[in-house]
Design a protein around this nucleic acid. Structure first.
Lengths: 107, 107
DNA sequence: TGTATATATGAGTAAATACTCAATAACAAG
DNA sequence: CTTGTTATTGAGTATTTACTCATATATACA
């Protein structure tokens, strides 16, 4: 009955629903842990990246851990990556379907 | 190498990242198939719902099938529901973590 | 203290989004 | 062709978003 709040689910999805934030998460998955590494890697303005990070932290996607002058970010829940992978699968199959229906069209 | 496009993944996530669209998908999962059923069910303006539907169709989440005067929508890929469920799991565990860290705080 | 490095934030802007109301289009059946 | 039902679209508005530049804050270390 207590179907998980649609608002909270939408809010989490929204945290991930930006190309740069997807890229940021992939950068973290591949071992980069701090903005100072990610910013040059993804060619993002420092202040812009900082705001994306804030969104990801505020919504519980990333956990910040200060280490001296830098802040290391780690994923709060490994299943976030599972979600990203599933999204990729869906995109891939969606593209396949588009091609198939293209083939089944009248000329 | 050909990491599924971050843009396309973000675009799909974005299609789902709205409370009303999550509600729409849950309504469809529970058996409602057309706007004329969903609009009153969710108490959404007809034109507003139509635009949400357009987003879901354009991004390949729903497939529209006209049946006379009405249009029935079906999920393009059942794994969309899997994604919604996983999102719910993440929200739930996120809430749990918040409570735990609350307990571990200084008074 | 002063300097270097990393991060956060105020202010401004341009673009995108969700929404509503009113008008229009598509279809079925008389 | 007319009427009823469903769906789409134009126009207007309010809000939110992403972004940039410049400035401020935080930490480490000489």
């Amino acid at each position: 009955m207590p179907v998980i709040s649609t608002k909270l689910r939408a809010r989490l999805l929204d945290a991930l629903a930006h190309p740069n934030r997807v890229r940021i998460l992939e950068a973290i998955r591949s071992g980069h842990t701090c903005s100072c590494e990610i910013a040059p890697e993804l060619d993002l303005e420092q202040s812009n990246l900082s705001r994306h990070m804030k969104i990801l932290v505020d919504r519980g996607v990333l956990v910040p851990e200060r280490d001296g002058v830098r802040i290391n970010y780690r994923i709060a829940d490994e299943d976030i990556f599972k979600l990203l992978d599933l999204t990729g699968e869906l995109v891939r199959r969606n593209a396949e379907r588009s091609i198939l229906e293209e083939a089944g069209k009248p000329s």
